[in-house]
């Protein structure tokens, strides 16, 4: 009888402890800045040299195709501009990528090559960059240009930025030669059909 009572008390206490632990795990609020968990690597930034207009240093050629072998991404790249409201155009099809024609072209000695693509669309489902948040640091991106050459880039960083605070530096043209891929991530607002964050992957010429 003594033994059973002790066993009962121990079980009850242990059980209560387990219950509390479980409840704590379940009821802990979701972290607010979860997309930041995607941040990795070091962003290649401006070296502080004189700002040159991309056209001045431009020896590159507009991109036409992009591949990310790790993610089995193979997509067409189309030139895009900026809408009057300041948003970057993105090709209408979720499968295509848009190259900002105001920025550097692959092969340029300096400046950022900016390529954006849908993570998904309501109409077509997953887009070309759906898997972008899963890229590994050191992975490859291959870009074929209009001049017929393919240029290889190595992924060096990944960042999630709240959409309304996407840094201007992402589009820097006084930066070392680099490629940035931009898509969406974070939480999804069904009312506005938009995501809370932009996911930016930085790569350097290999």
């Amino acid at each position: 009888m003594e033994g059973l009572t002790i066993a009962g008390v121990v079980s009850a206490v242990l059980g209560a402890a387990l219950t509390v632990c479980g409840a704590a795990l379940v009821m802990r609020p979701a972290p607010r800045v979860t997309p930041q968990a995607l941040d990795a690597g070091t962003v290649p930034t401006a070296v502080g040299g004189p700002a040159t207009h991309p056209a001045a240093a431009d020896t590159g050629s507009p991109p036409v195709r992009l591949e990310i072998p790790d993610l089995r991404v193979r997509a067409r790249v189309l030139p895009v501009g900026v809408r009057p409201d300041g948003t970057l155009e993105v090709p209408p099809s979720a499968r295509d990528l848009g190259w900002w024609r105001g920025g550097a072209a692959p092969g340029s000695a300096t400046g950022t090559v900016v390529i954006a693509g849908h993570v998904d669309t309501a109409r077509e489902g997953p887009g070309a960059l759906f898997g972008l948040r899963g890229v590994r640091m050191g992975g490859r991106i291959n870009v074929r240009s209009a001049d017929g050459r393919t240029r290889d880039y190595r992924i060096v960083a990944r960042r999630a930025y709240p959409k309304q605070r996407l840094p201007h530096s992402v589009f820097a043209q006084d930066s070392p030669a680099r490629l940035v891929l931009i898509t969406c991530t974070g939480s999804f607002d069904r009312r506005t059909s938009s995501y809370s964050h932009n996911l930016v992957v930085y790569a350097q010429p290999d």
Binding site: A30, P31, V82, G86, G102, H118, A160, S194
Partner: peptide
């Protein structure tokens, strides 16, 4: 106009890629 960098990129309207896994072992 082309030298004026974009301020925003809206590149998703499907809601399939919601949030990173938030790390809670539910």
């Amino acid at each position: 106009r082309e030298a004026d960098p974009p301020g925003h990129v809206a590149a998703g309207s499907g809601g399939l890629a919601t949030a990173a896994p938030d790390g809670r072992p539910l």
